[in-house]
């Protein structure tokens, strides 16, 4: 494989498919969860917060191992037959992205002055309208959370390799391809593939900055 090889495009496309799918699921669950955690008061909140923050630093190999055990032939989810498919990679990356999104959104929401929440409530907002108003206040923080999560999962290699298997044409993504080419001693190709990863990250960040500029 060379830097501009036609074989490369499926790898880039799969990288985007897996990462964006995981990010969309993590956002759909993590943003509401983060807003709820940031606003709610209940017994056990500290413990749950600690779990989320620990999840933010979960090592990819541990996530890979757990996903492997879940999806393997003797695992509880073996009937899905997802092991060594892009779906398994999406599961692993979602598990990594979810606590990051939820934790960072929770932090942003918790930093909103409590008096602002009170003032919104005093104007007659329902609990859902309060959550929506707060979410609008922290939208830059939400964007930042999504960027951080994207950066983490697009470049991780441990879990993607363990549950995907780096199978050419099926589960090979940019990060696992870089690892493989490095292992083979093809440093030029590895560097070129790494360059593509950087280009992807840069493109996403520039798009996010444009969005942020428009919403400010």
């Amino acid at each position: 494989m060379r830097a501009f090889d036609p074989d490369l495009w499926p790898v880039v496309a799969l990288t985007l498919r897996v990462t964006v799918s995981a990010l969309v699921i993590a956002a759909a669950v993590g943003i509401p969860a983060g807003v709820w955690l940031g606003l709610a008061r209940f017994p056990g909140k500290r413990a749950l917060t600690a779990v989320v923050y620990t999840g933010m630093a979960l090592p990819p190999v541990v996530v890979g191992l757990l996903t492997y055990l879940l999806l393997s032939r003797s695992g509880p989810l073996s009937f899905l037959e997802w092991l060594f498919t892009p779906n398994a990679m999406i599961v692993a990356q979602t598990v990594m992205a979810l606590p990051l999104v939820a934790g960072l959104v929770m932090g942003a929401v918790a930093a909103v002055p409590h008096d602002l929440v009170r003032q919104v409530r005093s104007l007659g907002a329902t609990p859902w309208q309060v959550r929506w108003a707060v979410l609008r206040e922290v939208r830059v923080g939400v964007l930042f959370a999504l960027l951080v999560a994207f950066g983490r999962i697009v470049s991780e290699v441990g879990a993607a390799y363990m549950v995907g298997g780096n199978i050419q044409g099926q589960t090979r993504v940019l990060s696992t391809a870089v690892m493989m080419e490095t292992g083979k001693g093809d440093f030029g190709v590895a560097l070129a593939l790494g360059g593509w990863l950087v280009v992807l990250a840069l493109t996403v960040n520039l798009a996010a900055m444009r969005l942020q500029g428009r919403s400010a």
Partner: peptide
């Protein structure tokens, strides 16, 4: 409706 001592705007 309540107006607070320290107004916070959205």
């Amino acid at each position: 409706s309540l107006v607070f001592q320290r107004p916070l705007l959205l």
